[in-house]
Design a protein around this nucleic acid. Structure first.
Length: 448
RNA sequence: GCGUCGUUGGUGAAGUGGUUAACACGCUGGUUUGUGGCACCAGUAUGCAAGGGUUCGAUUCCCUUACGACGCCCCA
């Protein structure tokens, strides 16, 4: 049997409906903040990801899907969204547009060549946003608030924002040096991996799982103590704006993010979800003021955020959050003989055009089986087509909830269904969390 | 790239070096010549991830590969 590639997933059924719902909330919320949708290629020149991501990490060469195309060009399936967006910003000279900053969001598949484990697949879908061309602390706060609002709109509770500042290049270099100086004399007390990290990427020692309880880590220098005045002031402003926007957060000096290109604000957003285990980060981001220049564009201050949709869907399911997802059909058409079937085909067409969700029988089941099928499809109403009724211009309709049956004139069928289905609306459980604020995009019943 | 554990029907799964691979759910049909969801009856894997090996004989033991779960590395 042909199997799907390692670390990839088929998404279908109810899960697929949840995905579409999550994406609809993302679109709607992005629109409120006036972020424009951007689509960039799923693969790019390998050097884009090599350049964009710091020299000291060996991420790119080892953990991306690389291939040589037929023209001999080195290509890489994108492992993240930011680099492609920056490339597009530079290549399309968006920096020349007076309408700065450029605020965009994306939603697409990313590819990482790593061993799958809990919450980490080789093909993943991420959405994210980037603000290019503004160094204003307000944009930092806005990105964070936007991310938080998307999670809240979806109904996730206990969203926690951890923020930190790495400062500007000067601050960051000073801190890096201080960290090395601090750990160097105690190198033997660190785990084997951290000994390597000390040279390669000392900031990540703070994230080490093995040494997490090591006193050495707890007393390690904090980034915020090494911020120069300007960076410190900037960080204060970001926090001020978050306060004004009523976004709660916690300053966490251990948030460092892995990549070299980050500076100033870095943040991660986690959700306390039963069953998520230790890995409860939904998304993260930060400011990257030098990436655009690294890929050949002008020096452009930027900030962004990215989040995996798969993890959000998992969180929604684990939290058993009720979503306004349509999983039932309005009417199921039953028939036995060929004439009735033909009429069912005709009627289905008419009713669908009239706006009803209609389904019928396609596998030749006996009537008994058709009733079962109607139940499986959560049919609200069943129409049992009978040649005699049809000859009299009538049709038998069964309310599948009350089991009541009545024969009505075909002439009033649409009116009848409209009436019946709408009176039931108030009984429909509706746990949409938009509070009526979504403007109808979430298809909940707040909007009549 | 490294490690641990897995992989039996549509689904959940039990099980054994040897004639017909439990049980349950589901599904299909019948009892009910066009009204089900209850009940009863019947049917429903030439097959135990794939390939190779050991053996008189393997789904069961060994090896390899693929995929899955969870860790490590890395984390965008």
């Amino acid at each position: 049997m042909i199997q799907k590639p390692k670390g990839c997933n088929d998404i279908y059924g109810r899960e697929a409906k949840i995905w579409k719902y999550v994406e609809s909330i993302i679109d709607a919320t992005m629109e409120k903040y006036n972020y424009n949708y951007i689509r960039t290629p799923i693969f790019e020149s390998t050097e884009l990801f090599h350049r964009g991501i710091g020299e000291s990490t060996d991420i790119v060469t080892k953990e991306t899907y690389d291939f040589v195309d037929r023209g001999g060009r080195n290509m890489t399936l994108r492992p993240e969204g930011t680099a492609g967006v920056c490339r597009s910003y530079v290549e399309n000279k968006m920096y020349g547009n007076p309408n700065q900053p450029v605020k965009v969001y994306y939603n697409g598949t990313m590819y990482r060549y790593e061993r799958p484990q809990s919450g980490r697949d080789r093909e993943l879908t991420q959405f994210g946003m980037e603000v290019l061309g503004s160094d204003d602390p307000l944009s930092d706060a806005e990105v964070i608030s936007l991310a938080v609002n998307i999670y809240k709109m979806l109904g996730l509770k206990e969203i926690k924002v951890n923020i930190n500042s790495l400062g500007d290049k000067e601050s960051r270099d000073m801190y890096r040096k201080a960290l090395i100086d601090y750990f160097q004399p105690h190198i033997s007390e660190l785990c084997e991996d951290c000994q390597t990290r000390l040279e390669k990427n000392p900031l990540r020692i703070l994230d080490c799982k093995v040494d997490a309880d090591n006193e050495l880590l707890k007393n390690a220098p904090k980034t915020i103590d090494y911020l120069n005045d300007e960076s410190r002031e900037r960080f204060e402003q970001v926090k001020d704006y978050l306060d004004i926007m009523q976004v709660s957060y916690e300053v966490n000096p251990n948030i460092v993010r892995g990549l070299d290109y980050y500076n100033h604000t870095v943040f991660e957003i986690e959700a306390k979800v039963e069953g998520f285990g230790s890995n409860n980060v939904l998304g993260g981001g930060g400011r990257y003021n030098h990436l655009c220049s690294e890929i050949g564009g002008p020096e452009t201050p930027c900030i962004g955020f990215a989040s995996g949709i798969g993890r959000i869907v998992l969180a929604l399911e684990l939290e058993q959050i009720q979503l306004p997802i349509v999983e039932d059909v309005d009417l199921f058409l039953m028939y036995v003989n060929e004439d009735e079937k033909k009429y069912a085909a005709y009627l289905a067409q008419e009713l669908r055009m009239a706006g009803f969700i209609v389904d019928t029988e396609y596998t030749g089941r006996a009537l008994k089986g058709q009733f079962k099928q109607a139940d499986r499809l959560n049919a609200k109403y069943i129409a049992i087509l009978n040649s005699e009724d049809l000859d009299n211009n009538e049709i038998k309709i069964k309310n599948n909830k009350t089991k009541e049956e009545e024969i009505i004139s075909l002439d009033v069928l649409i009116y009848y269904l409209d009436e019946q289905l709408n009176t039931g609306v108030d009984d429909v459980e509706d746990d949409c969390h938009c509070g009526g604020e979504c403007g109808g995009d979430c298809h909940c019943h707040h909007h009549g």
